[in-house]
Design a protein around this nucleic acid. Structure first.
Length: 894
RNA sequence: GGGCGGGUAGCUCAGUUGGGAGAGCACUGGCUUUACAAGCCAGGGGUCACAGGUUCAAGCCCUGUUCCGCCUACCA
């Protein structure tokens, strides 16, 4: 607390806002006072909960995290201010492959592989690494101002979460929804593990299509030609397939072909899978290295020959081609085929190739024994939940993406040949062959009581534990009040790239194990690209580092920028310049607050009786505008329109409060002879508006709003637990806005004349104002001091009838004429030109409206109020035109 | 092949039910106006991709065309 006060003295007078001496202090303050902590089951308060998409422990905060967590924090802080019992669960993900890669690289520096260390020692190293670096990203989130409940921090490999993983696995296994099978899966030879389909990135590449001659047995002349992009896989061929309706090959079906270089006999089979129009219409079949071939092989009971080792080199099944990398093997096979005359031709070809999403290595389809989850039945209720609207995607179009994947869902390969992760809770009895699947580690085989049991070597896909995140983090499977109170969570915010990986799987697991959806809404935030629309990447050198931006501009500026960009699109473009805009905004807030603070000296809202105050036109106007702003911002946040919400506050603060209200009240604030009550009233409005701006701003810009709010009179300990401004439904006085707009119009018109006549704004001038309507005349007279001040006018005549001074410039506002006598100063020609330009503008508008009004169909068919509007418009424009024209003629006759 | 998103000011983008084209940045001119030059004041700038249709009225609804981006699919 002392620190903070010292700090306030330091910052009080600085003319520019310095986030560096403010941000850490307030974060510490919030933490010290437990302001981010959710209540508990005893609290009756309505809950609002979000579970954070857990960043990888290997990760460092990038701009995508910054956006995602800013949006969550906005919602969380907003709901907290609205009085909800708010819970934002933070946590990290153990990231199987990524972490293992990092630790392997580390021990490689010591000249070792993980196999040198052994599983146990390797895992020790991995945990050490995690202890040392695994919280980096969480500390970076604190820099962002994220108001997570750190007392509920979770990690996917925690004891509790691991228990949840085991319980889910065992339960799904017992239900027959998890099974073990030999299947062609995606194999990353570098990571040496299986990958799920969606972990493979397809990319189009230039390749070659090789046409290879396969001779027929018992025939010297006849042969069959097959086309392939992966010639080395021929070593695992066990058949050739043709389409049964392909006349060209009718006589070949059932015959035997000889595999070149190897000599293996291949049956020629008929199958509908083969497209007669592609290649030669004949396909080599390699069941162990191609999914389609595998399935065809099963239909025709073909032999499955695996020619690869786990590391992607060829095994003994490749014969004389053994112990080569795929590339080396391909080269050797091609060389030999050409040499021996088996290569018919080679064509250039473009096709898509799978790459590992973690290390980009080319994926090999690979036959191996893996664990799978049966998805179809799990998907069904998860689809229904969205169809019924129990869970809503925002923007809505993402529902289609979700459905598309869910309808075509395939079984999920969940075993990974890694060491870092949740080890599969399956044990095999070495004596009787029993398979033991249970939550707790067994000590003996339940069937034969042998102690000779070994656990499955594999670990589970990281996403398997992530899928449980919304309930495992809340304490499941332990009976626990958090789960009861905060599940289903209120909202999930994430990127569209993990709708399949994560959102869909959480939906399925949540519904399966909690019998309820995991979240009521899913907001899909856009992905950030650079200003040219290119993806940010280290190799391109176009990354914007959020921590650097915080250092340069402050966390608030970054957050507000990100919020202001968050429209409901797929991509948004970010640049430093955009952040600068909002850094400037923080400075604007800082300075208007400095202004307010100097005028709030000695002010205490407790001394105020609002009934005693006589709010003038501008007071009422700014209070109304604030009220409208509160309504808009609240509605926008309700609809997750972050950009609109942010920009509405921005506009009110800058364009209404700073540009107009502050300027309008300055005079009375500086006046020495001001009435005490009058002064207190003005102070009250200043305080009230500023206080509300800060509270509206707090979810977006938590630091600066707290810093300033603590300096103005306030009740609560922190702005973060002060109430969100409420919209007051009372009818606004209709004429207030109209009156203010006339006064603003007068000021702007005079300023415009000055600017266009090259007169400095601050040069005092005289004006003659002709205003016929007495109500308007009185209005202008009443508020003349304000117009005089803001437009820098020296003296004025305001009459319903007066002569236009001969040598003068003219401004027209509706039916009001403003003359600025400029004898000796005015350049007649340029004033004529100026008025003519204005006339042209008005004429253009009039033409459009006249066209409408002359259209009989319009008069007959358009609604009355629309027609009326147009008539009023044309009347006003005509008046303005006449006035300008009259003055123009007068000028010309001089 | 299938699907989705988008083409509005020089740039980045708003524009909810059809009814006077907006913002930020950039640009131009002026300003030592006592909170702020990270500022203040004033201003210029758009055939709303193209073609057709519905309508009294279309940036918005419908059809077609075109260009860009993304996702997805087992054509070897």
């Amino acid at each position: 607390m002392e620190n903070i006060q010292e700090n306030q003295i330091k910052t009080q007078l600085l003319p520019t806002y310095n986030p560096k001496i403010v941000e850490d202090h307030w974060y510490q303050f919030w933490i010290e006072h437990d302001l981010f902590k959710a209540r508990d089951q005893k609290s009756e308060t309505k809950p609002y909960s979000i579970v954070m998409p857990p960043p990888n422990i290997t990760g460092s905060l990038h701009i995508g995290h910054a956006l995602n967590n800013t949006l969550q924090d906005i919602m969380i802080r907003w709901k907290r201010m609205q009085g909800y019992d708010v819970l934002w669960v933070p946590g990290t993900d153990h990231a199987g492959i990524a972490t293992q890669n990092v630790v392997e690289r580390e021990i490689a520096k010591e000249g070792m592989t993980r196999y040198d260390l052994g599983r146990e020692k390797f895992l020790e190293r991995a945990w050490q690494w995690r202890e040392k670096y695994g919280s980096n990203i969480l500390n970076q989130l604190k820099k962002m101002g994220c108001s997570c409940d750190w007392s509920r921090l979770r990690f996917t490999l925690d004891e509790g979460l691991s228990k949840a993983v085991r319980k889910v696995f065992v339960s799904l296994y017992q239900e027959g929804l998890i099974y073990r099978s030999n299947y062609v899966i995606n194999w990353c030879p570098r990571c040496q593990t299986a990958l799920a389909d969606i972990e493979v990135e397809q990319r189009e590449e230039n390749a070659l299509l090789y046409y290879i001659i396969y001779p027929l047995k018992d025939s010297i002349k006849e042969y069959i030609v097959v086309a392939t992009t992966r010639p080395e896989t021929m070593l695992g061929d066990t058949a050739i397939a043709v389409n049964p309706n392909d006349k060209r090959y009718k006589d070949y079906i059932g015959k035997i072909a000889i595999l070149p270089l190897v000599g293996r006999e291949l049956t020629i089979v008929a199958d509908d899978y083969v497209d007669p129009n592609f290649g030669t219409g004949a396909v080599k079949i390699t069941p162990a290295h191609d999914l389609n071939d595998f399935e065809l092989g099963r239909r025709h009971h073909l032999e499955e020959i695996n020619i690869l080792n786990d590391d992607g080199t060829t095994n003994q099944n490749a014969g004389s081609y053994a112990n080569l990398s795929v590339q080396e093997c391909r080269e050797k096979v091609l060389r030999d085929l050409k040499e021996k005359g088996y290569m018919k031709k080679i064509e250039e070809y473009r096709h898509s190739l799978g790459h590992c999403y973690r290390c980009d290595t080319v994926i090999e389809p690979y036959l191996s024994q893996q664990w799978f989850v049966k998805m179809a039945n799990l998907a069904k209720p998860a689809i229904e939940a969205v169809e019924k609207g129990n869970t809503n995607f925002i923007p809505k179009r993402w529902t289609k993406v979700y459905y598309e994947w869910m309808y075509n869902i395939k079984d999920w390969c969940i075993s990974r040949q890694l060491w870092w992760g949740h080890r599969i809770p399956v044990w095999y009895c070495q004596d009787c062959g029993e398979i033991i699947v249970q939550v707790d580690d067994p000590t003996e085989c339940p069937k034969c009581h042998s102690k000779n049991i070994v656990q499955d070597k594999d670990v589970l896909d990281t996403w398997f534990s992530s899928a449980l995140w919304p309930f495992s983090t809340l304490g499941w499977p332990d009976q626990n009040s958090d789960l009861e109170k905060y599940y289903p969570t209120s909202l999930l915010i994430t990127g569209f790239d993990i709708i399949f990986f994560w959102v869909a799987r959480m939906m399925m697991m949540g519904i399966k194990f909690q019998e309820d959806i995991p979240f009521r809404a899913v907001f899909i935030n856009p992905l950030i690209k650079d200003i040219e629309g290119k993806k940010m990447s280290k190799s391109r050198g176009n990354v914007i580092d959020p921590l650097l931006m915080i250092d340069q501009y402050g966390a608030d500026a970054l957050r507000m920028t990100l919020a202001s960009l968050t429209i409901q699109a797929n991509y948004i473009r970010l640049s430093k310049e955009k952040i600068e805009t909002f850094r400037n905004f923080t400075n604007k807030i800082w300075n208007v607050s400095r202004f307010c603070l100097t005028h709030l000296e000695g002010f205490d809202p407790k001394d105020c009786k609002i009934e005693d105050f006589d709010f003038n036109l501008f007071d009422q106007w700014i209070l109304d505008q604030l009220n409208i702003t509160v309504k808009k911002v609240t509605e926008y946040l309700n609809q997750y329109k972050f950009s609109d919400a942010a920009m509405t506050i921005y506009e009110f603060t800058w364009n209404y409060f700073c540009d107009w209200y502050i300027e309008l009240v300055k005079d009375s604030l500086y006046r020495k002879d001001i009435d005490k009550l009058e002064k207190r009233k003005t102070q009250y409005v200043l305080w009230h508006i500023l206080d509300n701006i800060l509270r509206l701003l707090h979810p977006f810009m938590p630091f600066i709003s707290e810093e300033i709010w603590q300096k103005i009179p306030h009740k609560e300990l922190s702005i973060s637990i002060s109430p969100w401004p409420e919209y007051k439904k009372e009818k606004l006085k209709k004429d207030i806005e109209e009156k203010v707009s006339i006064i603003q119009g007068m000021i702007k018109t005079i300023r415009n004349i000055k600017a266009e006549m090259n007169i400095p704004l601050t040069k005092e001038i005289d004006t003659h104002i002709r205003v016929i309507k007495s109500a308007k005349k009185e209005l202008i007279q009443e508020y003349w001091p304000y117009i005089k001040k803001l437009a820098h006018v020296h003296s004025s005549i305001i009459e319903s009838s007066l002569e236009k001074p001969a040598y003068s410039a003219t401004g027209v506002l509706e039916d009001i004429e403003i003359f600025v006598p400029l004898k000796g100063v005015i350049d007649l020609e340029s004033e004529v030109q100026r008025l003519e330009n204005k006339l042209t503008k008005v004429e253009k508008e009039m033409t459009l409206i006249n066209k409408k009004l002359k259209n009989i169909d319009f008069i007959q068919k358009a609604p009355e109020d629309i027609i009326q509007k147009e008539r009023i418009k044309i009347k006003e424009l005509t008046d303005v035109w006449n006035l300008i024209d009259k003055n123009l003629k007068a000028l010309k006759s001089l």
